[in-house]
């Protein structure tokens, strides 16, 4: 059994789930309905294979939801959920002086409270944490995942190497987004989709804005611990195909460097495995099974390092790697 069981059920029946509650696009509800679900029994949001029961009393967050998740299947009725998350005002006497917002999973708060206009970013971080700490039937690697012509590409790199920027550029050019943050690899070595808003930081925001004036963005969050953050809304095609898996075809370790000429180098499976272990959320939790999946992955998908300064060069390089002309 896989996590996908629940999503196949939901995706197969886009608006009627067979389990007693209907799923509609979130933007088909009006803001009052969304508000009352968020402050009442919870809004059910279907992100890939995950059902989230979401509660919030933060107006800024309620306003950001239809922008960032407008295209996602959702429901204002009671029903199945995987995780119950709330993004609510922190109570207590601090509230009298300054509003702050906490992320809660089933009533426990793993993070420090944040400012209300960071609530949507807090939700994204919290959801990453929730998945990383719970979804152990997948090998979870820190990597963006996209698909082109049926071929899965993993962009795996440390934070700050331009992974999300490259992922944003690729999905604006028609690549299908599976994830901008974590690659989920199931027991049959398929990449599981979990398309969510792509988190862009600092100068990457203007870069993508200028290149793609029609791209949709969520609200800007200034002065977070990662600087200024803005989320690119996942393209509709990626959201509709959210539960389609992809076969890993290529592993790329991107590195953006100012003024660097394009450089692509092949990396051996051993070195790739070491890199991926370093970038994994739960490799050690999976034990022997994690080792087997990882070694099978690096043997199936060749790996390349990609150093670039111009996004267009990087995209061209990836296109030719995909079509095998490298």
């Amino acid at each position: 059994m896989h996590w996908r069981c629940s999503c196949q059920r939901n995706s197969a029946t886009d608006d009627r789930c067979g389990r007693g509650f209907s799923l509609l696009r979130l933007d088909s509800y009006d803001s009052k309905q969304i508000q009352s679900a968020l402050t009442g029994i919870g809004l059910r949001l279907q992100i890939g294979f995950l059902s989230i029961c979401l509660k919030s009393d933060v107006p800024e967050f309620a306003d950001s939801l239809p922008i960032l998740y407008g295209r996602y299947p959702s429901s204002c009725d009671e029903g199945y959920f995987d995780f119950d998350i709330s993004v609510c005002h922190t109570s207590g006497f601090r509230k009298l002086f300054r509003r702050s917002v906490s992320f809660e999973l089933s009533g426990s708060r793993p993070f420090m409270p944040m400012a209300p206009d960071h609530a949507h970013a807090l939700f994204e971080w919290g959801l990453n944490w929730t998945i990383g700490a719970n979804a152990h039937n997948h090998l979870i690697l820190h990597s963006a995942v996209l698909e082109r012509h049926g071929k899965g590409v993993m962009l795996s790199a440390v934070s700050g190497s331009g992974k999300s920027t490259l992922a944003a550029e690729l999905c604006m050019r028609g690549w299908r987004l599976l994830s901008d943050e974590m690659a989920l690899l199931d027991s049959s070595l398929q990449l599981i989709g979990l398309p969510r808003p792509v988190s862009l930081k600092n100068s990457a925001i203007d870069l993508i804005c200028n290149r793609h004036p029609n791209a949709l963005f969520g609200p800007q969050a200034r002065d977070t611990h990662k600087g200024t953050i803005k989320h690119l809304v996942a393209p509709e095609r990626s959201v509709i195909a959210a539960t389609d898996t992809a076969i890993p075809f290529l592993i790329v370790i991107p590195k953006w460097e100012a003024d660097a000429p394009l450089a692509i180098e092949s990396i051996g499976p051993g070195q790739t495995a070491m890199h991926l272990i370093d970038q994994s959320f739960n490799y050690s939790v999976l034990g022997g099974d994690g080792f087997n999946r990882l070694t099978a992955l690096v043997q199936r998908a060749p790996a390349w390092s990609l150093k670039y300064s111009a996004l267009d060069d990087a995209v061209d390089a990836l296109e030719s790697l995909i079509s095998g002309n490298a």
């Binding site: 059994m1 069981c5 629940s6 995950l50 719970n134």
Partner: peptide
Amino acid sequence: LPGGLKAH
């Protein structure tokens, strides 16, 4: 269990 929770 519903399929998703089996995975949990």
